[in-house]
Amino acid sequence: MTNLLLMLGFFIVSFLIGYLLISRIPSLLHTPLMSMTNAVSGVTILGALLLFTVPGNGTEKLLGSMAIIAAAFNVVGGFTITDRMLGMFKGKSKKSSAITTQES
């Protein structure tokens, strides 16, 4: 029970810290932010990984590996696409268009 309360506390503290930090993020970056936190939500991959720390039957393994695939897709895809997106945000120096890269 104390353990559960502790976890609840963990949740609340993290939520608050997240809340305070994210409130300050400019709306310019909302989409990348959402995409990034989206990738972070693939943290369930840890849970999926923990499923494999105790012996399980076939069904459990199947479900577990499905969970790993889904979570890995979420994490890797999310961070990659965020990186791509952020790469487009250019400051004063304008980037050269895609045409030039294609010629190489």
Binding site: M7, F10, F11, G18, M34
Partner: peptide, 29 residues
């Protein structure tokens, strides 16, 4: 984020809870 945090509660993993909570907060905002 919420689902991840709940998942963490079931398993009893702090990292999952914290990460999930941050995402939940971000989505909430």
């Amino acid at each position: 984020g919420m689902a991840a945090a709940l998942c963490g509660m079931v398993i009893g993993n702090r990292l999952l809870i914290a990460f999930g909570a941050v995402v939940a907060a971000s989505g909430y905002i």
